[in-house]
Design a protein around this nucleic acid. Sequence first.
DNA 1: GTTTGCAGACCAACTGGTCGGTCTCTTTAT
DNA 2: ATAAAGAGACCGACCAGTTGGTCTGCAAAC
Lengths: 207, 207
Amino acid sequence: MRNKPLRERIIETSLRLFETYGYHNVSVDQIVKECGTSKGGFYHHFSSKDELLYTIHDQFITYVLEKGHAAYNEWNTPTERLRAIAKSFVVMIDLYKPEVTIFYQESHYLSSDYFPNIVAKRDQYKDLIIKVLREGVECGEFHPQLPVTMAAMFIFGAVNWIYKWYKPDGKYTIETISDIYADLILRMVLSPECLSNYSFFGFLETD
Amino acid sequence: MRNKPLRERIIETSLRLFETYGYHNVSVDQIVKECGTSKGGFYHHFSSKDELLYTIHDQFITYVLEKGHAAYNEWNTPTERLRAIAKSFVVMIDLYKPEVTIFYQESHYLSSDYFPNIVAKRDQYKDLIIKVLREGVECGEFHPQLPVTMAAMFIFGAVNWIYKWYKPDGKYTIETISDIYADLILRMVLSPECLSNYSFFGFLETD
DNA sequence: GTTTGCAGACCAACTGGTCGGTCTCTTTAT
DNA sequence: ATAAAGAGACCGACCAGTTGGTCTGCAAAC
């Protein structure tokens, strides 16, 4: 930690502080003190506190987007792809809890210079889900009348919301959660024929 | 507007300002200027800017909770109840857009004095959904192995997320959205037998 | 006359950001 | 090989602006 580049140390420290206290309750002074640097050091690496927030956002959303595309390319059918994307997203929430929290809690405070960039990438992710859903409808795996845009927003919301309640040491492991969520999603979109080929929630009893 | 009680005017004004610029980007000076009062007037009705935020939160969550229980009592089967609760929640998002936005964007900035109260009421709403789901599983309308807690969080997230993208003058009316979402939810939770009794998404073609 | 509802000048604290300067390491000239 | 020169990383005292909140005053209501 001590000999990591200062820039990284600032990001890591502010990640922790922002997650705990919120962006607006953490001052630059606090950040630099906490990671043993100075105002000068901070403003040498970031042009403003706002740019730091942007950097955090961008690093995170870029990573998520990559993972999404990777999951898409790794599989060949819409059903498998949807499951893979959903699962990878849920697991990511566990790995990047602070980033996720800050991303969703503070993104509306991004200055207008940085905002469009982030929104664009977020939309790309949404479009990926829509694409998978549409391909699934076309090849008959998903329900023929599925309203794909709405379904995509529905799924996106459900999965995103996890960060609001997920606790790493809670009752359910992230793996279990991701399995359940994937099942719920598939139950929702699969066509009647494909639906009967699957058995859902087999691995646990009602709680 | 002019002759409404000052307290209400302050709330309405700050609702508008908070939604547009965010809680932290709106100063008390701005609020009092915008609704034609003064610092004295403001602090006569609210002990702090924080209490104003709490008041907004509490008014809103109390209303939502009431609506949820009303929807529950109005119907008799889990399926109808779940549909009614979901629909009423979605429609509420349209009616109370500023309140919803502020609630979800700023609730983590509530001071610790007020926070527990809000969390308690939010949990009550979550418990209501869990209750309906559990009753549905017990009477056989919903899937026997449905993980009710997870399903509740899933539904809660999906529906809540709407405020992030919904535009009153967008492509879909709030009525259409609420119908689609209710269908998606029921497809997800219904038992195989009950599922086949319904036709879903009948009212529109794939988009 | 006393309480209530509001006005607005005022303040202490804190904030993000600046700026001149130092220290270290690399490059170049001799 | 060594000295000179330059560049990049970092320091920390300082500043101007803004913020939430207070306080005295005053006019109307009871």
